[in-house]
Amino acid sequence: MTSTWKDARLGYTVRRRPPTPNIDLGRFKDLYTSNISDILGKLMTMDCRIKPVVNIEAPVIGFAVTVMVHPGANLMVKKAMEMAQPGDIIVINDQFDRNNALLGGVMAEMAAAKGIAAFITDGLVRDQEELEAAGVPVFAQGLTPIAPASSRPMGQVNTAISCGGVIIHPGDIVMADKSGVVVIPAIDAETVLEKGEVLRKKEWEWLHPEMPGEFPIYASTNAELERTGCEIEPGA
């Protein structure tokens, strides 16, 4: 005997994709996740367990379509894929599940056909060879051959979620590369770009001192050692 719900269940919801923010993502091309992490005070950087499970040729950046699922269940992931626009990144809160893959080769092929930029999840995925062939970057906790759970119709699409310890809202900017994943709140995009330009200029100056080899970081390091009372043997 099966039962059905006559009324919508609280927390089981699909919301419209918000309008695409008027932000040119190409302006971030000279920045890496490490730069963004520094600018955002290390607070919008996902857990280091979330890493690329396929070969990543270049950083990926896009607007977030957010998904929350019951651990290991991917019904809402499929709905998010239907709703996503080309260039979007699907970000999935799977509560660090270590039992079931959320997606594999078939869904990656579907995502590639639609132009989805990447998948990011704190759960597991499968079919590494097929993921590689599909060409859609996938960042996850790891790999498993175990299929998704199919009988857990719960979750949310396009609500605020947590993934890898970071709060993400639909429409936020997500950047991912070989080092990891960072999230840029859409409201902070212009400030991040301004600070990024300053940071890149500063890094260039660090690496190109007036006297070759006399990097400013050495002077600041020695000043900090002296300030904090470190005993330095003469000549060291």
Rank of each mutant, 00 (worst) to 15 (best):
M110H: 07
I116H: 04
Y12V: 14
L225I: 08
D88T: 00
K6V: 08
P71H: 11
G142Q: 01
A101D: 07
G62V: 05
I168E: 09
T33M: 06
K78S: 07
I232N: 01
S151A: 12
S150R: 12
L31Q: 08
C230D: 06
E203F: 07
E203I: 04
A80W: 03
D88C: 01
V65T: 12
G62F: 09
M1Q: 11
G41Y: 14
G104W: 14
C163Y: 00
G235M: 05
D127T: 06
T13K: 08
G87P: 00
M211I: 15
L225E: 06
V166R: 03
A64K: 10
K202Q: 11
W206D: 14
E226N: 13
A134W: 01
T159H: 02
V136D: 03
T66N: 11
M110V: 07
P185A: 12
M107G: 06
D177W: 10
A118T: 02
L131I: 02
A223Y: 09
V138L: 04
K114T: 03
P18F: 04
L10D: 08
E130N: 13
A108R: 12
A219W: 08
P86I: 05
W5R: 08
T45A: 00
N222M: 15
G104L: 12
K78I: 05
M154R: 15
D172K: 00
E224G: 04
D188H: 12
N100G: 00
P153D: 05
S162M: 09
D38G: 09
I184K: 00
G229K: 01
L143Y: 01
L43T: 15
E82H: 02
N158T: 02
Q95M: 15
A8P: 14
G213C: 08
S220C: 04
M83W: 05
V157N: 04
V166D: 01
R9E: 10
P21V: 09
P19K: 06
L199H: 05
N55D: 14
V91D: 04
P52T: 02
G164H: 02
M46V: 12
A147F: 15
I23M: 14
P145Q: 06
I116L: 06
E130I: 07
D24W: 07
V125M: 14
G135D: 01
A236R: 13
I56N: 03
A113I: 05
G164A: 02
G62A: 13
Y12D: 11
A140I: 03
I167T: 15
L103H: 05
M1S: 14
N35F: 12
N100M: 06
T191W: 10
I161K: 02
Y12L: 10
R27D: 13
L131W: 03
I116P: 02
E57W: 05
I90E: 00
A101V: 08
R49V: 06
D38H: 15
A236F: 12
I116W: 04
D47A: 14
N35V: 11
K201H: 05
L199E: 08
L40A: 09
V67H: 08
P209K: 03
I146R: 13
E233S: 14
S37F: 09
V14C: 03
M83E: 09
E57R: 13
R16M: 04
T228R: 15
T13D: 14
E231Q: 13
E214N: 07
N35I: 06
G105I: 10
V53M: 11
V54L: 03
F96P: 00
R16P: 06
A64C: 13
G115H: 09
V182G: 01
P21T: 09
